[in-house]
Structures are given as structure tokens and as C-alpha cells.
Design a protein around this nucleic acid. Sequence first.
RNA 1: GGAGAGGUGGCAGAGUGGUCGAAUGCGGCGGUUUGCUAAACCGUUGUUCUGGGGUAAUCCCGGUACCGGGGGUUCGAAUCCCCCCCUCUCCGCCA
Length: 424
Amino acid sequence: MLDPKFIRENPDVVKAACRKKRIDVDVDRWLALDSESREIKRSVESLKAEQNLRSKEMPKLPPDGKLALRGELKILSDRVAEGEARIKLLDPEIDGLMLRIPNIPAPEVPEGKDDTENVEVRRVGTPRQFTFAPKDHVELGTSLDLLDTERAARIAGSRSYFLKNEGALLELAVLRFALDHMVASGFTPMIVPHIVSEEAMRGTAYLPGGEEQAYQLTRDDGWLIGTSEVPVTAYRGGEILNVAELPIKMAGWSSCYRREAGTYGKDTRGIYRIHQFMKVEQVILCKNDPEESKKFHAEIVAHAETILQKLELPYRIVNVCGGDLGRPQIQKFDIETWMPSRQGYGETHSASRFHEFQARRLNLRYRDADGTVRFCHTLNNTVIASPRILIPLLENHQNEDGSVTIPECLRPYMNGRTVINGRR
RNA sequence: GGAGAGGUGGCAGAGUGGUCGAAUGCGGCGGUUUGCUAAACCGUUGUUCUGGGGUAAUCCCGGUACCGGGGGUUCGAAUCCCCCCCUCUCCGCCA
């Protein structure tokens, strides 16, 4: 959510943001309704002031005086009710529009309609030249008995999987390795609720708009999280933090659930696009300072890069263009890891900065050194998401004999094993 | 799932229709005292929106709303009524 004052004072900037992000919201409608509602609120407020003032006389009056005053106050009260009825009519539409008005993208966000126009920032590592015909992760996973998607489809439907044997262990290893890196970097590890309230979903800006992507509970209230960003960012919502607590750095661990509606026929092979996965997510709450936000954005990108480098995986970073940027982000860098079976880079990480967009919705504030209450800035990035990361891990590290070498950083988490070869 | 109790400021805890943004205590902040610390004493102590004034900024004056959330009764609601949510205790079921 943007500062309403900002929208009133900079409608053209807001409209330009809508255009750059390819988001259709009637900003003028919001401006008109907002101005009408505010005018009514001002008049209701002054009526209430009068009402309160005159009501103070009431207890002191004799019975007949009370009766007369009641008559007068009733008129005031009716006018207040009238105004409030108008407001009650206007405000839901104002709020509804407000939730759809996007955050302003940074100037350095490239112009573009969709992910094909994202701009590569840099590449790190060189995709391996195979001297044999490499298998894809499904072939590797099946032949080494790490993965079963066929039976999963029978048990759980499409976009499901079983991880088995070293596949299961490898997932836990890579997650734990990633989490340990974050803890060593000063992040608080968090195991979080997977079912959250609608408020938490709205607060992190997944709603409205993300209804199609998220699983909603029907018997009870609640939504399954698509990322631990939701509970972790919302964790301190509604609070006024002490500035000394900032920055707050947290690493959320959770399963993630995504409906993947509208993706039929896309990425159907293997475990690239699935309904449920595990993720460690890094979240930072910091001061309301664009420079600081930007610094932490670089930091969370760097954490992800370090992990990919230790996993010995080539990757590239792209600056996500306006049309591919979500409503709440100021800027987003996607990290894409080399996946031999795709003969290309596939998204494995997504690092966003939001400024106060989420914090406003979550009412997440802090008291600055000068006593002023301000909204925090929020940021987040993937640390590792599995099993998607198993795709490059298995494919890049495969050997001609069909085995897979375990990168050194994961061996301590795999009981010292160096290779997955199906023998156990 | 059944029965009961309760949700008030950072915390504890009064307040059952008007003078209540709310007693009191603790905590926090400022000060006095002190060689320092503690104690004691004095003062202060939230947020929202809004009108006006002022600054580099903190700010000042007025109004409004906020006592779990929503609705209602009333001239007027923390206080009365209805619905919902949450917490606690006991019972049942159960990983």
C-alpha cells in the first residue's frame, strides 16, 4: 500500500507505475472517491465535536432541560449518522482500489512487458560441457531411485512427487546447509505456521490478486502459505518496534503450497513446477531508508549467490522488468540457475525490495531515534527452494556412469557421502 | 466437540451509561539527590485521522477516533444487547 498522501500529490507518478507494471487500476476513480470521503469525514468530525461539547451539559441540566437538549442533539446525531452512512458506502470501494494500486518501481527497473524482457545483470560460473549425453533430473532421479513422480500422480495428482533415499536426504541436506549459512550470517531461524489468516495474506500483498495461486481453506478460515515470507514478514505486524531492534533478519523454513493454476502444459516434466515444496526464505525488516533497503537487497542477493557458489552451480542474475514485476515490489532480482535439461537458466531465487508497501499493510512500524513513528522497509529473497534446486544439483553434478557427485558443502549433511550411485 | 472463565494503555490491574484516553502499581523516559550505582523524591509517558501555526528537523495548539473485531440500543457506550474471533481451565478425542 502506498501513502495516500503520496497518491494525492503524485497521481501521475502512480499512473506511470501502473503502466510500467502493466497493472490496470482506476487511479482517478480512487482520487475522486477519496476526496469525497475526506470531505464528508471532515464535516462529520466537526458535527461530532459539537455533539460532544453540548452533551457535556446534559448531566447538569434539570429534567425539562434535558428533554429539550435531547431534541437538539437528536438532530445533530441524525446528521452524523447520515454522513457516516455515506462514508460506509464509499470506503469499501476506496480501500478495494487502494489494495490494487501498485508500488512505484525503481527507475533502474527496465521497461518491458514480460519475463522475456528481463535484463541480465551478470553471469557467474560456466555451464558445464558434457563429454557424454547427460541425463535430465527425472532420468537420474528414477535410475538412482531418488524420485518418483509417476506413483505420486496416482496418489496426489499432477505436479506431485515422492523423494526417496538420497533424494530425500539430499533435500534435507541442502535446506539445512542453506539455513545454517543464514544463521551464521545473523538471521534468526524460524519455523512458521503454514496456514495463515487472510490478514497476513493481504498484509504481504498476496491478496487481493493472488487468489488463483493460493490454496484457501474451505471448512475453516485460512490460506496455505505459498512462502514463509507471509508469516515471517507478518510476524511483528501491528507492532511499533524499537529502532535499536532493526534490522531484523529472519530465515523462515516451511513447506510452500501453490495451485499453479493456468500453467497447464507448462513445465510438466519432473519437479520444476509442483504444488508443494520446501523453502528457506530470508526476510529483512529495516529502517525507512531507501539506501539502507538497497544495501540489504544487495546483501540478500549475496547470500543466495554464496550458497549457489558453494553448491558449485552456474547462475545468472536478471533485473526483472516492469511488466514481470509484481504489484508490491520496488525492484526484483531473479536468480536463475543453470539447468542442463532446459539448456538454459531456470529461476531458483527471487529477491525483492518493497520499501514500506508491505509494512503499511501490516501496520509494521518502529520508533525512530527522534521519536517519530515510521513504517519499516521489508525485503526478502529465497535462500534455497527444494526440490527445484535438486534439478541443477543432480544434472550439473552427474557423472558418465550415471552417478551424481555430492558437492563438498553438502557432504557433512549427507553423512560424509561423496557420491550418489544407487548402491546402499 | 462439550462445559465454564476471560479479553482494558509496554505489562499488571480498576472502572457497569455522561465530568473516562481511561484510577492505581510496575516498567520506560527526563530531572533532583549521590563520589558512582542503587534507593528515595518530583515530573512525564500511546496511536489514528483531521484543522491551524512553526522548523533544517524533532515540535506546538485545537478537534476526531481507538478499551479483541463487527453490528445494534441511546442525545450519549469501555460500560447495555446481538454476532464473530481469540485466550485460559476442565471433560472428550487425538499426533
